[in-house]
Lab assay of single mutants.
Amino acid sequence: MATGGRRGAAAAPLLVAVAALLLGAAGHLYPGEVCPGMDIRNNLTRLHELENCSVIEGHLQILLMFKTRPEDFRDLSFPKLIMITDYLLLFRVYGLESLKDLFPNLTVIRGSRLFFNYALVIFEMVHLKELGLYNLMNITRGSVRIEKNNELCYLATIDWSRILDSVEDNYIVLNKDDNEECGDICPGTAKGKTNCPATVINGQFVERCWTHSHCQKVCPTICKSHGCTAEGLCCHSECLGNCSQPDDPTKCVACRNFYLDGRCVETCPPPYYHFQDWRCVNFSFCQDLHHKCKNSRRQGCHQYVIHNNKCIPECPSGYTMNSSNLLCTPCLGPCPKVCHLLEGEKTIDSVTSAQELRGCTVINGSLIINIRGGNNLAAELEANLGLIEEISGYLKIRRSYALVSLSFFRKLRLIRGETLEIGNYSFYALDNQNLRQLWDWSKHNLTITQGKLFFHYNPKLCLSEIHKMEEVSGTKGRQERNDIALKTNGDQASCENELLKFSYIRTSFDKI
């Protein structure tokens, strides 16, 4: 039985969820670079991206490699990797027998973001014989899940209580170790020597080791999670996991709180800001991140802002960003909400898709409305799209047979046209069989910064309504002859009103 693990408890099935942008060198404390989270699957090609990484700022997932063999891993080693800020997950990587050479110096898994409450997941690794993470000293947050690894031993010899604050939620089941077939031998045991430290858990006094050649490092209890030197002297209180010299914040392997210019500090002093819960960055760093993602459509890219001495992905609820200094300031009234469309555009074809934009005031991208039916549609669209004030790209209304009016965009005031449909149009209306009105132009103002209007096959939309939009939106004169079809717009509506004058002759039985 794995020490510190839980057996036999019912657990939810383990679901495996399925960018080499360097964020800056980590400095003297770390020998390499800070790398983003990685999802490495199918083959070993991307694994080489770990070569210079000291910190993975995010998670590391290595999974679904069915053609790899043990010899493929023999020359692979990433000794610079010290810390993973989120979680480490391995799933069905064939041929991998140990992690001792792959990650010989991995010391800390912070667990800032977890995989279903777990910071370390080893699942269905069919050839893994031992973990071998002999320098792993601290899992700051989260638990361990090690399950269905039929060859995995050296679990009962690990004292997880020396690595985690609590072992109650560890789930370590259905491994070879369960069948008591392992016969784990710690260093020196074969020669009758006791080389590794022994600890007591559940009444068992057991030597602690990761492999037959690597003991588990056990520091004096007084050192807590700070770690200790090879001689057993406690590291500085700002260290986490390990250090090369005692009581020196510049000799830590990793930091308990924050890293700044080669030393570990309790908090980031001005003019620095907390970033990702582990390091200090200056304003320029946060500003660069903001600008890199301002026009990016890459998933996970955030326009970072500053709030409460932190550089964070977005302002919290009730705050909006001051564009001059990136500071989050309290909103006066309802907060603006910028919604970034991942692929640059979004099609609204149902109430469900409209709900995804609920509360958005600025759309960074283009909207395509293609709704053919739905219950209580006008009210639903207004509830979900009615706060949109600005669209950076274009607005396209296409084959939306259920629409009679666009009044559900009740606050839309600006279409920038930074991206144009077919390279020309910022407003595009095609084949809307029941569209009769755009907006009530006596109450609604709309500016279209650039781009043209396109109207074709809107049989109940009168040309007068379209011409009014040209005047109000500032697009009059931009359109070419064929942009607004004269014969297919309003051709099934009563669009022309003329005053009919009647004269009559009164007659009676005795007068003409």
Results as ranks from 00 to 15, higher is better:
His59Trp: 07
Tyr171Met: 10
Ser244Asn: 07
Gly132Asp: 03
Cys215Pro: 12
Ser112Phe: 08
Gly183Pro: 09
Cys311Ile: 07
Pro269Met: 03
Ile109Thr: 00
Phe73Val: 09
Arg279Gly: 04
Leu99Met: 12
Arg145Tyr: 07
Glu130Met: 15
Leu102Phe: 14
Cys239Gly: 01
Cys53Gln: 00
Ile172Leu: 11
Thr329Phe: 13
Gly142Gln: 01
Glu231Gly: 15
Gly95Phe: 05
Met321Trp: 14
Leu44Ile: 13
Arg297Asp: 15
Asn202Tyr: 11
Tyr171Leu: 04
Leu120Ser: 01
Gly142Phe: 01
Cys223Arg: 01
Thr329Leu: 11
Lys80Ala: 12
Asp288Thr: 08
Leu63Tyr: 15
Leu96Phe: 04
Cys228Asn: 05
Ala156Val: 07
Ile84Glu: 00
Leu128Tyr: 00
Asp184Gly: 15
Val108Pro: 00
Asn138Arg: 15
Phe73Lys: 02
Gly95Leu: 02
Asn308Thr: 04
Asp178Leu: 08
Val93Leu: 13
Ser296Gln: 11
Cys186Gln: 02
Leu174Met: 14
Cys328Phe: 01
Leu106Pro: 01
Glu57Gly: 06
Asp86Pro: 00
Gly37Pro: 13
Gly58Gln: 00
Lys129Ala: 12
Gly32Met: 05
Asp248Leu: 06
Glu49Ala: 05
Glu97Arg: 15
Lys80Trp: 12
Asn195Glu: 10
Asn135Glu: 04
Cys335Thr: 10
Lys100Tyr: 08
Cys252Val: 00
Val200Ser: 14
Arg141Glu: 14
Lys67Ala: 06
Asn105Pro: 00
Ile312Ser: 05
Glu231Thr: 07
Pro269Arg: 01
Val93Thr: 13
His236Pro: 02
Asn52Trp: 11
His48Thr: 08
Lys67Thr: 14
Cys235Gly: 00
Ile40Pro: 00
Pro316Asn: 09
Gly241Leu: 02
Ile201Gly: 13
Leu96Val: 10
Lys67Tyr: 04
Gly232Ala: 06
Cys215Val: 11
Asn117Tyr: 07
Gln287Val: 14
Leu90Ser: 01
Asp248Met: 04
Ser317Gln: 13
Ser98Phe: 02
Val167Leu: 05
Val167Cys: 15
Glu238Arg: 07
Ile163Lys: 01
Gln299Trp: 02
Pro269His: 14
Gln204Ser: 13
Pro36Asp: 01
Arg69Met: 08
Ile56His: 02
Glu130Pro: 01
Ala190Trp: 12
Leu327Tyr: 15
Thr140Pro: 05
Pro187Ala: 08
Asp75Ile: 11
Ile56Gln: 00
Asn42Cys: 07
Gly132Tyr: 01
Leu128Glu: 01
Glu147Ala: 10
Pro336Met: 06
Arg141His: 06
Cys328Ile: 02
Cys335Lys: 01
Ile146Thr: 01
Ser225Ile: 13
Phe91Leu: 04
Ile306Phe: 14
Lys100Thr: 09
His236Phe: 01
Thr189His: 10
Pro313Arg: 10
Met321Leu: 14
Leu47Trp: 03
Val305Asn: 06
Lys191Asn: 15
Trp160Val: 01
Pro271Ala: 13
Gly318Gln: 08
Ala198Arg: 14
Leu155Val: 15
Lys217His: 02
Ala119Cys: 03
Phe123Ala: 15
Gly142Asp: 02
Asn52Thr: 02
Glu151Cys: 07
Leu240Met: 03
Leu128Trp: 01
Arg41Ser: 15
Asn309Glu: 12
Asp248His: 08
Met137His: 06
Ala198Trp: 10
Gly203Asp: 08
Tyr171Arg: 00
Val93Ile: 04
Pro187Ile: 07
Cys223Pro: 01
Lys67Trp: 15
Cys255Glu: 00
Asp165Lys: 02
Pro336Asn: 13
Met65Ser: 14
Arg298His: 04
Arg141Cys: 02
Thr329Ser: 09
Leu240Thr: 08
Ile84Gly: 01
Ser284His: 08
Asn322Phe: 10
Lys80Arg: 09
Thr320Val: 11
Asn202His: 12
Leu260Cys: 01
His302Phe: 05
Asn170Phe: 08
Leu60Asn: 00
Arg263Ala: 13
Leu120Glu: 00
Asp248Phe: 02
Met83Asp: 04
His214Asp: 03
Asn52Ser: 10
Val218Gly: 05
Pro220Cys: 05
Ile56Pro: 00
Ile146Phe: 11
Lys191Ala: 10
Cys196Ser: 07
Leu90Arg: 00
His291Arg: 06
Ile109Glu: 00
Ser213Asp: 15
Asn52Leu: 04
Gln287Trp: 11
Thr85Leu: 11
Arg92His: 05
Asp72Val: 12
Val108Thr: 13
Cys315Trp: 02
Phe205Leu: 11
Gly318Glu: 08
Ser161Leu: 10
Tyr171Trp: 10
Pro270Asn: 15
Glu238Asp: 13
Phe116Arg: 08
Asn202Leu: 05
Lys67Arg: 09
Asn322Ala: 13
Gln276Asp: 15
Ile158Trp: 04
Ile82Ser: 07
Thr157Gly: 07
Met125Lys: 00
Gly188Asp: 06
Ala198Val: 05
Arg256Cys: 02
Tyr154Pro: 04
Cys53Glu: 00
Asp247Val: 11
Glu168Phe: 04
Ile122Trp: 00
Thr45Ile: 05
Arg297Leu: 09
Asp169Ser: 14
Phe283Ile: 14
Ser323Asn: 03
Asn117Met: 08
Gly262Trp: 01
Cys196Phe: 15
Asp169Met: 13
Leu81Met: 08
Glu238Leu: 05
Cys153Trp: 04
Phe115Ser: 10
Glu49Thr: 13
Lys129Asn: 05
